[in-house]
Design a protein around this nucleic acid. Structure first.
Length: 499
RNA sequence: GCGGCUGUAGUCUAGUCUGGUUAGGACUCGAGCUUGCCAAGCUCGCGAGCCGGGUUCAAAUCCCGGCGGCCGCACCA
């Protein structure tokens, strides 16, 4: 399944392995023309769904952060693992895990040197071969660089887009109404030096995130629109079921999830309900989604509670969204480290450090899930000889393709002119005149183009073209001067078969 | 990072064991002819042994090292 999807994704240059000709390190993928268009439309749809509709703001912050920012955020000490290697069999282990299991010793937040000392004292040896263990080293997942000439200042490429938002928060708060709650988002790349990236788009070293930080007053941890979604249902994979090794989920409404304290507050429940609506629109089936209540030991250093949205794929359940209650952790830490007061003054004159709920979307993983769930094999109900993608019309990489039935008799010229005018009207339009008409329909199906407009001999006579609908292959004739209106309504209504 | 398997055009593959013509085929892609609506046909064309070293008169083929891929382990903020 995934192999089929990856094959067609590579064939149509939806994705391209980066730096391919040098057979370089893994974990990097480029997006080709089709993939980039899909990604752009996904991101725009997200902006519309999560930002514009609720009046939140989008910003863009820098990729390179000085070390002190990441020391304050906790990424320098927590965003990585203490590793220890057996000097005999060369196997590697998590030093902290070994100490906790074998030595019954809590070593949260300890430095590598302290861990090494503890390992020696507790006489811990290699659990595989019993050989002696070496020094504890620190593997940080951040890419390190230098700012300025020569040594300069140490900097890191950002491991998440969120930090930039926290750093800019106070200015934005002052310049945009000085009221809580306030949502600030960022869509962009983040970088993590994964030890062993695998499985195509699931674990990348350079990836895109869509992160929304919802700043609110901790004394009113609710969302103004919670009522609108409180009865929305979703499946929850509880901590109890996870510990029992079961795959069972319980189904709750947003309201019940808060009442049962699986979700820390109504704000997170609001976003979870919206996330479900969003992914359903993208073509992910309800049954292929669950929220996993993260186990306490899995939650990130900043978190007061995490619930991930996972999507079932042929690779298993893949985390596509991390919902984190970051509390005031980040603003407080930056406040302390920078010696700047990052609290805000409310209407009643009181001062408070806002709390934050953060839904963090993985763009590349979402694309992977869309590709897999929209993929249709040859045959099927449509009895096609080729595979294709059933993308929703509003995120299809291209809106339409214009195809002359024949190249001769002026059909090609007429068709090219039509493609040009559609492009001018804002449609992402392809033009293709090579080979037989059937082959061109197949090509368009393979990249999920919802509408093929065919210019034939009737076009020359009466100014109509046929519109072919991707999902049933059926056609209707339409006047060229009505096309703009028709196409817009089809795309908006996600009309994929002949109405 | 460790272990097992593996690497030939964009894709799938023949040849590798047993070294020896111009590395063969299919699909794709491009050009032309043809074609009056769902990957039709014909002609032509582009395009390949992961990289580096070694053995040899001769290496896609044998040996060593590196790099990549898949699977398992570990890791996964």
């Amino acid at each position: 399944m995934m192999q089929d999807v990856m094959e067609i994704a590579l064939k149509r240059s939806i994705i391209i392995p980066s730096n391919e000709i040098y057979s370089p390190a893994g974990g990097f993928y480029d997006y080709g023309p089709v993939g980039k268009a899909l990604k752009r439309k996904l991101e725009d749809y997200w902006r519309d769904f999560f930002l514009r509709r609720d009046g939140y703001f989008e910003i863009e912050t820098v990729y390179i952060l000085p070390e002190e920012v990441l020391r304050a955020s906790g990424h320098l000490s927590c965003f990585g693992d203490p590793l220890v290697e057996c000097t005999k069999c060369k196997k590697r282990f998590r030093a902290d895990h070994l100490l906790e299991e074998k030595g019954k010793f809590k070593c949260e937040g300890m430095k590598p040197e302290q861990l090494t000392k503890q390992m020696k004292e507790k006489n811990i040896t290699c659990p595989e071969c019993g050989g002696p263990l070496g020094e504890v080293g620190w593997f940080n997942l951040m890419f390190k660089t230098n700012i300025g000439p020569m040594e300069g200042t140490t900097g890191y490429i950002r491991p998440e887009t969120a930090q930039g938002i926290f750093l800019d928060f106070q200015r934005i708060f002052r310049s945009h109404g000085s009221k809580l709650p306030m949502g600030i988002a960022q869509v962009g790349k983040s970088f993590r030096n994964e030890i062993s990236p695998r499985q195509g788009l699931v674990r990348l070293r350079e990836f895109s995130q869509m992160e929304l930080e919802y700043f609110f007053n901790p004394s009113s941890p609710t969302h103004p629109k919670f009522k609108q979604v409180e009865n929305e249902k979703f499946k929850i994979y509880t901590r109890e079921e996870q510990k029992a090794g079961s795959e069972k989920c319980i189904e709750l409404t947003a309201k019940e999830a808060v009442e049962k304290k699986i979700v820390p507050n109504e704000i997170m429940a609001y976003f979870m309900a919206r996330e479900m609506q969003f992914y359903l629109k993208l073509g992910i089936p309800y049954d292929a989604m669950r929220f996993r209540h993260m186990l306490p030991e899995e939650t990130p250093h900043y978190s007061g509670g995490n619930v991930d949205l996972e999507v079932k794929t042929s690779l298993g359940w893949v985390e596509v969204i991390g919902n984190a209650y970051r509390t005031d952790y980040d603003l407080k830490s930056h406040s302390q480290s920078s010696c700047k007061d990052l609290s805000v003054t409310l209407e009643d004159g009181s001062k408070v450090i806002p709390h934050v709920v953060e839904p963090s979307f993985g763009v590349d993983r979402t694309i992977l899930c869309i590709l897999e769930h929209c993929y249709r094999k040859e045959g099927g109900a449509e009895k096609r000889d080729w595979e294709w993608f059933d993308f929703p019309a509003f995120i299809s990489p291209f809106d339409a393709a214009v195809l002359p039935l024949m190249k001769k008799d002026g059909l090609a010229e007429k068709a090219y002119g039509l493609a040009d005018s559609l492009r001018e009207k804002g449609f992402d339009t392809l033009y293709d005149e090579t080979g037989s008409i059937g082959k061109r329909y197949a090509r368009q199906d393979e990249i999920g183009t919802p509408y093929c407009l065919t210019v034939d001999y009737d076009t020359l006579k009466d100014g109509t073209v046929t519109i072919r609908f991707r999902n049933d292959g059926k056609q209707t004739r339409e006047k060229i001067d009505k096309l703009e209106e028709k196409l817009r309504s089809f795309i908006k209504g996600n009309v994929l078969c002949l109405p």
